[in-house]
């Protein structure tokens, strides 16, 4: 299984042609890493389910290089409108170029703090967040543009915790939320809070050990727990 994971990760890495992203951008923008690849691989594994839900509008908060949004748009049968948000203007610019370079024409990037500039009440079908999850002192979160991509403050949760109460308002009735977490973020507590904020299901979907981190993807939705594949089959037949 480990071999497969590695192969998948490499495949994902090759799936993007990032030549347009000049290396110096990565001084200021989070370079695709293990967490990025876990998220992309997880979305690939979710393809049947996602296609069955026919997502029309997707939002990625903290898009960084734009790889995940680009991968999602290219993965699905019909690409959704893809809004790529980052608080870092350089990241928004790189994300825009990544999408365009890979032929994703339904995407746009903007500079925004979380979703605060968007009017998306119950419109989001796929919401993706790879938050700054590293446990750090709170002050570190705003230390630099690049720190904003990884410094998560107390429990690595300070930025994610600002988004959690807003998710039920953003998601459409068939909307799904995918978020990266590490063990130190207390994933079970994240799931519980998501349920308390009005989501019907919230669970750890995939995990992978990468260097010193146990990375995971949490999936949450407004509809009852998803039996893998069932919904996809039911809707496509």
């Amino acid at each position: 299984l480990n071999d497969i994971v590695v192969v998948q990760a490499k495949k994902s890495a090759n799936a993007f042609d990032s030549n347009e992203n000049h290396c110096h951008d990565y001084e200021h923008v989070y370079e695709p890493s293990d967490d990025t690849y876990l998220l992309v691989d997880t979305l690939h594994a979710e393809k049947a389910l996602l296609d069955s839900l026919r997502p029309k509008l997707a939002l990625e908060i903290g898009t960084g290089s734009g790889c995940v949004s680009t991968a999602l748009a290219k993965l699905l049968k019909v690409p959704p409108a893809m809004f790529m948000l980052d608080i870092n203007p350089i990241a928004a610019s790189v994300a825009s170029r990544t999408a365009a370079h890979n032929g994703v024409i339904t995407a746009d990037a903007l500079v925004s703090d979380l979703d605060s500039a968007l009017a998306l009440h119950h419109k989001v079908d796929v919401l993706i967040f790879n938050p700054p999850y590293v446990v750090t002192p709170s002050e570190e979160i705003t230390e630099s543009l690049i720190a904003r991509s990884w410094a998560g403050g107390k429990d690595g949760r300070e930025v994610l915790d600002r988004l959690l109460p807003r998710i039920a308002d953003l998601l459409s009735p068939t909307g799904i939320f995918y978020v990266i977490a590490i063990l130190e973020n207390k994933p079970e507590d994240i799931c519980e809070r998501l349920r308390n904020f009005g989501l019907s299901s919230a669970e750890v979907l995939t995990q992978r050990r990468a260097k010193n981190e146990l990375l995971m993807v949490i999936r949450a939705s407004k509809f009852e727990s998803i039996a893998d594949g069932d919904l996809g089959q039911a809707k496509s037949t």
């Binding site: 608080i87 203007p89 903007l110 500079v111 925004s112 500039a117």
Partner: peptide
């Protein structure tokens, strides 16, 4: 006013 630069709106407050 929120500026649009190089095709990207800056919505930061």
């Amino acid at each position: 006013k929120f500026t649009i630069t190089n095709g990207i709106p800056n919505m930061l407050l």
